Simulated assay, not measured.
Amino acid sequence: MHRRTLNLGILGLAGGLVGTAMVPSFAHAAVEVDLDAASQPRVLGDPDAPLTMIEYSSLTCPHCATFHAKSYKPIVETYVDTGKLKFEMRDFPLDQYALRASAMARAIDGKPYFALIDMLFKQQSSWTRAENPIDALKKIGRLAGISAETADAYMTDDALLDSILNGRIAAQKTYDVNSTPTFVIGDEVIRGAEPFETFQTVIEGKLA
């Protein structure tokens, strides 16, 4: 089982926001954030699918990247694309850069959102180790059609950051999420970047 455990000290939470000592500098952003749209669930697949799979992940978590590299695609091809499963991504940032990346990604929705998440995981080792991770994030965002100004606006919007962090708190209370990745399939919780076959067994059992 591979997972990354939550460290509350990393985010330096203060009043629901990131501690100012850890906040990187951003350019002035004149773009208005659509908080309602940004806070909506990010769902892939038929909304009326008989089964829902929720992933709680941190975009800086290497085990989450492993899941997306090895198990995510066969799950989508086998169950989401066939209408059997609805897949929902939920943010569970473990550090300030995961939080900013999650906020930037919420500037888009639908399949482009999931394509961006996939790109962020594939390039995780590059942007997380960059001299300026925020600039590296914005370069990836531009490939998804997110301008630098929009990225800055979403990554610095206090209400959006609060929304993401409140979602993390809700995950802890509802499903006892304390590490990433954590998955909820129906009423079953799976912790760690398990192989496709593990998820397949659970999904097939729920669909039977």
Rank of each mutant, 00 (worst) to 15 (best):
I169H: 10
G186V: 09
A144M: 09
Q96M: 14
I146F: 06
A115K: 02
R4K: 08
A21F: 01
Y175K: 07
F67V: 07
V184S: 01
I169W: 09
R129Q: 15
I164A: 00
I140N: 02
V189Q: 00
Y154A: 10
I185C: 05
S125E: 14
L17P: 09
L160W: 00
A14W: 03
S126N: 12
T5E: 14
G83E: 02
W127E: 11
D152Q: 09
L8P: 14
D176Y: 07
D46I: 07
G15V: 07
D187C: 08
A27D: 10
A153S: 08
N132Y: 00
T82C: 02
L13H: 00
L161R: 01
G19S: 11
A69V: 00
G141W: 03
G16F: 04
V76T: 02
D135G: 10
D158F: 04
R142E: 15
D34V: 06
I140F: 05
L137A: 00
A29H: 04
S57W: 01
P112I: 15
T5H: 06
I75E: 05
Q172F: 10
H28G: 06
V23M: 14
Q96W: 04
S125W: 08
A144E: 11
F92G: 09
R168C: 05
T156A: 07
A69G: 00
Y97G: 07
L6K: 12
S57I: 03
N178D: 14
D46E: 11
